Amino acid sequence: MSGNAYQDDRGNKDRSITKAGGPGSAEGAMRKGKAVPAPGGPFLIGENMTGGYGKGPNILEACTIAVDKGEIAVIVGPNGAGKSTAMKAVFGMLDLREGSVRLDGEDITALSPQARVVKGMGFVPQTSNIFTSLTVEENLEMGAFIRRDDFSETMEQILDLFPILREKRRQAAGELSGGQRQQVAVGRALMTKPKVLMLDEPTAGVSPIVMDELFDRIIEVARTGIPILMVEQNARQALEIADKGYVLVQGMNAYSGTGKDLLADPEVRKSFLGG
C-alpha cells in the first residue's frame, strides 16, 4: 500500500461530514429517548446496556451506542451523565446486568478488554494514556504488541498523520505538550491496526487550535473506513464532525441523531450547547 492510509481522498471533504444522504449518514431523523440502531446492524453496538461498577448501583439504563464503518459517533451530555461509563461498557470495563455488545456481528459481551483489543478494538483513555518515560517511538512500538507482522509501514503512516511525532520521535513522551501526548496516545492505538477506534475525551485540556488539529486527524482516520466512537466535552465542536450523535442524561439516551440534526434542535441547543 502506497501513501498514507490516513490521508486518502475518501469521505466528505466538508469538515462537518454530516451531509444528508452522503457516505456515513447517521440514523436519519433525530429520535428522542431510547436510541434505535440502524437496520442491518451497525459494525459496533452496545445495545440496551444497563449496569454499573461492581455491586454498585446502575449508572447506565438501557443505553444504546452504535457506530458503523467510516463513521464518527460522538457521545455528549452534562457532567455525570455516564458518557465515559458508556464507552467503558462497550470496551468491557463495566459489568453489564442487561444488554450486549457486538463487534462486526459477533457478540463480545463476555470478553475482557484485553480480548477485545485482540478482536480489533482500539481504546484511548482520557488520562494515563502514554508511557511518559519512553520515547515517542517506543510508545508507538508498544502499540504493536499484539502484532506478529512487520509494522514499519503502519509506523510511517502514523508519523505522516502526526508530523510532530516524527520530529520528536526520539524524545521522552513525558516531555511533550498535552496535545502532543494525545497524538502519541491515538497513534499507539492505531498501531494495532484496529477495526474500531474509541477515544475518551481526546481534546480535554488542550487549546482550541490543538483541538481543531486533533479533530482534523480524527476525520482523516474515519475516511479510511475505521469507525470512531468518541466521548467529548466540547459538545458543539464534536457534533460538527459527527455522523452520529448521542446525548446522554443520567445514563440514558436523551437524544440521538446526526450531528447536524442535534446541532439544529432547539431543545438540545438550549439544554446542552449553551443556546
Rank of each mutant, 00 (worst) to 15 (best):
I75D: 12
I75Y: 04
I75P: 12
I75Q: 03
I75V: 15
I75E: 09
I75S: 08
V76K: 04
V76M: 14
V76I: 15
V76Y: 10
V76G: 12
G77Q: 13
G77E: 10
G77T: 07
P78K: 11
P78V: 03
P78A: 14
P78I: 12
N79V: 10
N79I: 11
G80M: 14
G80L: 14
A81G: 10
A81I: 12
A81T: 11
A81Q: 07
A81C: 09
A81K: 01
A81L: 12
G82L: 06
G82P: 04
G82V: 03
G82A: 04
K83N: 12
K83Q: 12
K83R: 12
K83A: 08
K83H: 12
K83F: 14
S84N: 04
S84Q: 06
T85R: 05
T85Q: 05
A86D: 08
A86Q: 03
A86Y: 01
A86E: 06
A86S: 15
A86I: 07
M87W: 06
M87A: 15
M87Y: 10
K88C: 07
K88Q: 14
K88G: 11
A89S: 10
A89D: 02
A89E: 05
V90Y: 01
V90L: 06
F91R: 10
F91I: 09
F91W: 14
F91E: 13
F91N: 15
F91A: 15
G92F: 13
G92Q: 04
G92N: 09
G92D: 03
G92H: 03
G92K: 06
G92M: 06
M93G: 13
M93P: 10
M93V: 06
M93W: 11
M93S: 14
L94W: 00
L94S: 05
L94I: 15
L94T: 09
L94G: 02
D95R: 01
D95E: 08
D95L: 01
D95C: 02
L96G: 12
L96C: 11
L96E: 08
L96M: 05
L96P: 13
L96S: 03
L96Y: 11
L96H: 07
L96F: 02
R97A: 08
R97L: 00
R97I: 08
E98C: 09
E98H: 05
E98M: 09
E98W: 02
E98T: 06
G99Q: 04
G99W: 05
G99E: 02
G99R: 05
G99D: 02
G99A: 10
G99F: 00
G99C: 03
S100L: 09
S100M: 13
S100V: 14
V101W: 04
R102L: 07
R102S: 12
R102V: 09
L103G: 07
L103R: 06
L103P: 06
L103Q: 03
D104T: 09
D104Q: 14
D104L: 12
D104W: 08
D104G: 15
D104E: 15
G105D: 09
G105K: 06
